[in-house]
Design a protein around this nucleic acid. Structure first.
Lengths: 206, 206
DNA sequence: TATTTTATACCAACCAGTTGGTATAAATTC
DNA sequence: GAATTTATACCAACTGGTTGGTATAAAATA
């Protein structure tokens, strides 16, 4: 352990993640990582037996954080309302609350980064990403199924596809935000997603 | 020119683009490109003075194709209706028509790929991507401005942000489609986008 | 004293890019 | 119209530098 109490392994992963979101995995050399983390090569390979193992660790950590966000915000939404529609609207709102705080363009998503370099990674690493996306489908898709039982949607839509739209809003907005260097894009697009859900299930005016 | 009439330069760019969408730019070696294109290294560097120049050419070609899609489909939509709302709905519908034909997951967008490796490219290359995104904002955003003049939106939204949502739907859906290997996701998400526009500007039921 | 980290040296494989040259066909000269 | 030049397209072999990864011995930490 380094003097300051933080784990060296975490420092390596933090440095690597930041570099990867800027330059991609292939272009992020081990030399660049150890320089950014302020350690030496021996230390890197003491903690990770290969660069591929670092990729797996990074994607596992990212998936855990992702899962934590999903479960935490869904749990909070469920305490605030019993109505599945309100729960989903609150759920999306909790993300928006966080995202409007952004002052710099969102650094991006490791899943999207790895997605466009997919051929570099082994099946185990790719499976972690795949499963993380499926978890949103199951959890959020399940909520939409429940909404369908109570509210007839104004248009014919699939629960799974509505759940996918959350991932789409995040991933798409990250790319626009990064490219145009505009932090507000992500919150804006999540707001459109919430608006859509609201309009889809709003009771017909009379 | 090779005897078969197809341009060698185009063959190089086609091979490179396919490889880059699978493995990223950094991991796509010139050796891999020339093998896929069936040429030698000398030929590659006869057509492109560097790998960076290839990146610029690729992104320029992609931007031109992107612009062509935007202008062509917008022009077709304008011939089919004079109402800006109907034009936008038809415009999105024309993309959906193309995308429902997909039998394999969409190969991805070069802009998104380069976005997650942005540090590797010079300002000229990045500017091409930036300008392509701004063109959607201007053209589609302008349409939404016109819609606002005629139809009051049910919720407070910005024209620019609604235009961004098209890019977001594409880019986000590409990532989900690629990751889960499901071709239908892109058309589905574009349909949600069209639904949203429809619901936003639908006349209040009475 | 077992674990973690530093420092330095090293390697085979791979990388982008260069070299010196060939083949061909159209344009130019005589 | 034969000889020469120019321009385009291509190639096999090579170069210097970078890559991920290893080795080792000593030092610092817990």
């Amino acid at each position: 352990m380094p003097r300051d109490g933080t784990s060296t392994k975490t420092a390596i992963m933090d440095a690597a993640e930041r570099l990867i979101l800027d330059r991609g995995f292939a272009a992020t050399s081990v030399d660049a990582i150890i320089e950014a983390a302020g350690i030496t090569k021996g230390t890197f390979f003491y903690h990770f037996k290969s660069k591929a193992e670092l990729a797996l660790s990074l994607v596992q950590r990212f998936a855990e954080a992702d899962r934590a966000h999903l479960e935490d915000k869904m749990a909070r939404a469920e305490t605030l309302s019993r109505d599945p529609l309100q729960q989903v609207l609150i759920f999306i709102g909790l993300f928006i609350e966080d995202l409007v705080q952004l002052t710099q363009p969102y650094p991006g998503c490791l899943f999207a980064s790895f997605c466009y370099e997919a051929q570099l990674f082994d099946t185990e690493t790719l499976k972690v990403i795949d499963e993380a996306m499926w978890e949103w489908r199951r959890d959020l898709g399940g909520k939409f199924e429940k909404i369908f039982e109570r509210y007839p949607p104004r248009l014919e839509v699939e629960a799974r596809s509505l759940a996918d739209m959350a991932t789409v809003a995040f991933e798409g907005a990250f790319i626009v935000s990064k490219t145009l260097k505009e932090p507000q894009v992500v919150a804006e697009q999540l707001t459109h997603y919430r608006n859509y859900v609201e309009l889809l299930f709003a009771p017909a005016e009379s």
